[in-house]
Design a protein around this nucleic acid. Structure first.
Lengths: 123, 123
DNA sequence: ACCCTGTTTTGACGTCTGTCAAGGTAGAGA
DNA sequence: TCTCTACCTTGACAGACGTCAAAACAGGGT
């Protein structure tokens, strides 16, 4: 019963496919989703993503100084995250602001759901 | 209230860190986690992972023919997944069997949780 | 119009990655 | 022991990636 409830909740959030652990991904679906994981597969981009995700929005001017990397390099990584569909950017005056795209974020999370494990609940 | 409950459930599953959307990842944590996302960032590996995750265990002999790729190439991708800690392998007689490591899987999923979105619930 | 600051693009560089062919290892069976 | 099959490792190669310096672009202020 709680099993069914969990699946309903998961599928609500999924625009693409059921969790990896439920049914194998078709080749075309994998081709769409893999670039998102790939974008998170670099330590710098993962930190950028977490910095952006932990607040409503974040200025590049606050992102760049958090790394020992040149401005262009940070800009490149942000572009990768943008092209993967994970974040959106908007210029407001002098500065550019980034924010996460919750749909994409949710989709990735839903893919990694483990439906029910036999040992998960000890009660 | 349901907010708190969700967080408790999430944190139970996390061996490493709170969700990306809760607190920025430290550099060291990012260096540990990024290789897992990177491993899923290739379409072939993502499909391999989903094929393995959707059953208790899977023989390489059933994995390889699902792709238009050479045996060594599949073997290489499986090695990447293994070294990322996402799967385990075991030789039993002639064949080698792969199964997912649920802890790693759960950890990644927990990182991608969105704690609560303002527009998620319509009731 | 000009400059100053913040951000992105371009070009170049060395390194890493995905792929295959060829060769190596492990176990089963005759 | 020999051979056959299943799987992995090695070596090689084209293409992709992360990085920076230099140049270009965008706005704000003078």
């Amino acid at each position: 019963m709680s099993k069914q409830t969990m699946l309903v909740v998961d599928l609500q959030a999924v625009a693409c496919c059921p969790p990896l652990a439920v049914r194998p991904l078709e080749a075309e679906q994998a081709a769409v989703v893999a670039p998102m994981f790939k974008a998170l597969g670099d330590p710098v981009r993962l930190r950028l993503m977490s910095m952006i995700a932990s607040v409503p929005e974040m200025c590049v001017c606050d992102l760049t100084p958090a790394f020992d990397l040149s401005g262009p390099t940070i800009s490149h990584h942000l572009k990768v995250l943008r092209e993967a569909g994970l974040v959106d950017s908007e210029r407001r005056g002098t500065w550019v602001w980034y924010r996460v795209r919750p749909e994409a974020f949710r989709q990735l999370g839903a893919l990694l759901d483990l439906p029910v494990t036999t040992a998960a609940v000890d009660g």
